[in-house]
Amino acid sequence: MSLHRLPLPLPGFEHIKRAWNNSYDAFSARLNPGDYYVTKSDECVYTTLGSCISACIRDRISGIGGMNHFMLPASSGDNSWKAAGLSASTRYGNFAMEHLINEILKNGGKRQNLEVKLFGGGRIIANMTDVGVRNINFARDYIQTEGLRVSSEDVGDVFPRMVVYFPLTGKVRVKRLRSLHNNTIVEQETTYLHNIEEKPVSGDIELF
C-alpha cells in the first residue's frame, strides 16, 4: 500500500473514497448513487448500478474524464420526463450531467473531444414500472441535445451491473451482477431517491 502514492484528487473530489486495487494495478474511486468523479490521473472509477445510470465522459485527446451515477426522481403529476419541460426530475438529471461535463471542461477538457459511454438503467425488479428506461432515455436525449454522441453503451435488460472506467484510456469493464444483489441495490437506490426527492435541486447551473 505504501508503495503506491494516491494521486491528488482534483479540487471538489476529496470526499470520494479511493483505494489501491491490485488486479487493476491502479487506484480506484468508488461512487455511490448521486456521486460523480473527474480525474486527470491514471486511476479508475467504479460503481454498482441497478436502474440508475452512469455516464462515462472523457476528452479522448487529453484523457481527462470521469463518471457520474444518478437517477431521475419521479416527479408527481409528471410521468413523462419529456412532458413539462423543466420538471423537477429533468432538472435533477441535467444537474448530474452538467456537473460532470463542466468539471471536465473546467479542468482542461475540450467539448469537441468528448467521448461518451452510457451504462445501467436495468429493470431489476420485474413488477415495477420501468424506471431504468426513463433514465436511459433521459441520458441519451441529453447527450444528443448537447451535440455529443454516445460511442458505446450497455443499458437496460434485467441485470444490475458493476462498471469500471479508466478515463485516461477510455477502457471500460462492465460486469453483470447476479439477481442475488437486486434487493440490496434497490434498497440503496430507493434511499438515494428519497433523499433527492426531499431536497429538490434549485438554483442555476453555471454553463461553460
Binding site: N21, N22, S23, S28, C44, Y46, T48, L177, H181
Partner: peptide, 14 residues
Amino acid sequence: ARDSLLLIQDTLEE
C-alpha cells in the same frame, strides 16, 4: 448477510 452482499458490491475484484 446484508453486509456480505454489500461487501461484494463494494469490491472491485470478483
